[in-house]
Computed example of a mutant assay.
Amino acid sequence: MDIPPPPPAPGHVPQPPQQWSPYRTPYGNPCAPPEPPKTNGLAIGSMVAGIVCCLPPLGLILGVVALVQIKKTGHRGKGMAVAGVVLSSISTLLVLTAIVTGGAADFWRGFRDAAGEAARTKSIDRLHRGDCFDAPGGDGLEGYVTDVRVVPCSGSHEGEVTGTFELEIPGPWPGEGEISAIAAERCWNIAGTYAMDTWAVPESVVTYYFAPDKRGWRLGDRSVTCSLSDDGDGTLDGPLLNDASMLDPHQAAYLGTANAVDGLLYGGPEADEVEDDPEGFRTWAIEVAAALEKGAEQLRSRTWPSVADKAVADRVAEFEAARKEWVTASEVTDDEDLFWTHHDAAHAALKTSTEISIREALVLETTPPKDYEDDTASEEGAAGDGTDA
């Protein structure tokens, strides 16, 4: 006898029986469609390698492996794999052909040369002391130069960097004149420490400098690059570097003193006449006198090789005699003729023969530049006149 089920409770709504499903659906969306098949990663890599053409066999290998995987997994990307295989096969054939015919060597040589040229090309403000360079276009250092090609100093070159410095001028653009005055003096002094034996430097070599223009100044450029260049044929043959590290202590000490004095002796105001800038000539005379006094003290206080003792002592006496003439010149800037009289007497006090004797004793260059040769000739002429009398 069947027992009927109990009557439903009041308010209860009967529910239909639920059917169990063996398939899972995405969380939160029981009605979502099935997830689409993924794209094979190797197929993507094969197509990219085929397009880029770097390592052509790589795209070919990736494409073949991708096709095998796609066949097993049903993933997408067959078209990309096929495209990668085709492109990579073409690239591989081209590379093999280039190797057989020598085209690859030509390509690599051209690439290497281009890369080397790019590495050697530098902006002027990125050069360093001791860098040798050529200006582009074959026009030398004339005109506006921003980029140069760095070359070995052992060969022919148009310029050789002696050093760099930053302009410490506050405020707006100071004008080309002020910058040029500072750059010319500083670069001349820097050259004196870079190539200390100035007699060993060819006479056609001059000091150049690369300074910021008005536009560069507004952009924050304050750097000055000093260099040496040949004012004759425009090229230097071999390095000019001859600093203290390449000299013995006696050579470096003497050249340091002599160059400091020469730097002021051959400077001076821009004006040609004393009456055009009497204060400038007065300041110049005072500075030269001070340099001669300091130079005499430096020469006197050092113990020199015995072979150089007499010549150095003579030079000290000449410095002191010249200093007196410069002191007097500084006091007579109101009289043009009198100033130049004492100026000439100061120069005459410094004998070229004494300079040659010191250099010979210290094993330095003994052939004087032309301006020194002229002094020597005048000295010999004066001595000859005295003998004849």
Rank of each mutant, 00 (worst) to 15 (best):
E287H: 12
D231C: 02
G163A: 05
I190P: 00
G79Y: 08
S306G: 15
V206E: 13
W284L: 01
P17A: 12
G130T: 02
Q19H: 10
S353H: 07
V288N: 04
A115Q: 11
G84P: 07
E178W: 08
T328E: 13
E270D: 14
N242E: 08
P33D: 11
V332M: 07
A244R: 15
D233K: 00
G77A: 05
D272R: 13
S123T: 13
V95I: 14
Y144V: 15
P36F: 05
L247D: 08
W188P: 00
D248W: 04
S89D: 00
E279I: 09
V288Y: 06
A81F: 04
A244H: 09
G77K: 00
G130C: 06
T387N: 12
A285I: 01
V327F: 07
A348W: 06
S229G: 15
G280N: 04
D197A: 02
T354V: 08
A66W: 01
Y144H: 15
C226F: 04
P37W: 06
E287P: 04
P26V: 08
L255Q: 04
A195R: 09
A377S: 12
F111I: 10
L338E: 13
E160P: 00
A377M: 09
G103N: 07
L42G: 08
V312I: 15
K72F: 12
D374I: 14
S330I: 03
D371Q: 12
I169E: 07
K370G: 11
Y194D: 05
I358K: 04
D385K: 10
E279H: 10
W188Q: 15
V13K: 15
S357P: 01
G268A: 03
V205A: 07
L96G: 14
I99Y: 11
V65Y: 09
T387K: 13
V68N: 10
R76T: 12
L240K: 03
P36V: 07
A377E: 14
K370W: 12
G63E: 04
S88D: 06
L292F: 07
L364M: 10
R186A: 11
G234N: 02
L264C: 01
K310N: 13
D147G: 06
V327N: 15
A211P: 03
K351T: 03
G159L: 02
T376G: 15
T352I: 13
P305F: 08
D233W: 01
P249G: 00
A383N: 08
T352H: 07
R24G: 15
H157Q: 05
L67M: 14
G381I: 05
V161Y: 00
D233N: 11
A311W: 03
N242T: 05
M47Y: 15
D388F: 14
L364W: 02
Q19S: 10
V68L: 11
A322V: 03
V150E: 04
R112H: 12
E336A: 09
T92D: 05
G74Q: 03
A252Y: 04
A195I: 02
H157S: 06
H347P: 02
A181I: 08
A383C: 00
Y372T: 10
V148F: 01
V332R: 10
D337W: 09
Q15M: 15
A361L: 00
L42E: 08
L58D: 07
G175E: 03
D344C: 01
G267V: 06
C53N: 11
P305G: 06
D197C: 07
A349P: 06
E320L: 13
A104W: 14
V151T: 05
V100T: 13
C132V: 03
D106F: 14
